[in-house]
Design a protein around this nucleic acid. Structure first.
Lengths: 141, 141
DNA sequence: AAAAATAGTGGGTGACTACCAATTATTGGT
DNA sequence: ACCAATAATTGGTAGTCACCCACTATTTTT
């Protein structure tokens, strides 16, 4: 794959290529070393970061459709990584929380992601990696 | 969409988000202001950058499956942006080249892409934009 | 001359993404 | 008590993406 200069000159083009590539790498590693999908990992991270919440709230945070969220939660519950109880204050909602196994899975996932991250960003020095994160974060509203 | 810190801390995660978002923006603008798909634009750019070539070579350069390349070429030919003649030296191959209309479309596309690029990267100064391009290119082997 | 390789073509798949509509249970507002 | 809104659920759809296989025409290799 020997991309033409015109395309290589487009920052967003290269950005997309790198983004998709690294996402794929992360997803693959996560899948076969932790049995987690990217979304599953994202939900676990959300739960750990902001505590137990209703499905809709987690989905909202991640920009995930409620219906897709249901299916995702089914997987997590099935794998014993999360549990849902009805919120006693509003019995329409669930109160989804991490199980200890979920916490473990998240930590394993975190370590894996970090490793892939290091590999992907290997061509950069530590300073450059930090700078990149800074710049890309600025763009990401 | 209020992503959890754990995810925001992952450079490749944000990279992917930004990449997909900007790709979408470029594709949309290209589609409704130049009637070009992203791949069509990419092929035009390839042709302009490295001259007439066989379909397989263009596809190879772009990492595109030969069968998908065929369909893409059909579109370009249909729109009068490219033409293909059999390579007299090897009549299995085509010799695909840009038409004047193709050249025009490419230039219009280029301008549009540049505009979206500026909008997307607006949060960055000119220096930062250049730095970002440098860093991201380093990663993209 | 026969066999292997290559370019293009057509038809198709599986995964993934991002939706949407309808339904049920429950709640809050009036 | 009634109505509108909300949470979760089920069962879809449409688009894109990255492939793969079988086939024809042509060229290269043996």
């Amino acid at each position: 794959m020997d991309l033409p200069p015109t395309l290589l000159a487009i920052t967003t083009f290269v950005l997309h290529k790198v983004g998709v590539g690294s996402r794929r790498a992360v997803a693959a590693r996560l899948a076969d070393e932790a049995g987690l999908s990217l979304w599953q990992f994202a939900v676990l991270a959300t739960l750990a970061d902001s505590g137990p919440a209703a499905q809709r709230e987690i989905g909202g945070r991640l920009g995930l459709d409620p219906s897709d969220m249901v299916r995702l939660m089914d997987e997590l519950i099935g794998a014993g990584l999360a549990e849902r109880d009805r919120d006693p204050a509003d019995r329409r909602r669930y109160r989804v929380s991490l199980t200890p196994a979920g916490r473990d899975a998240l930590e394993r996932g975190r370590a894996l992601v970090e490793r892939v991250e290091r590999e992907t960003l290997a061509p950069l020095t530590a300073d450059e990696r930090e700078r990149l994160h800074e710049l890309i974060t600025k763009i990401f509203r």
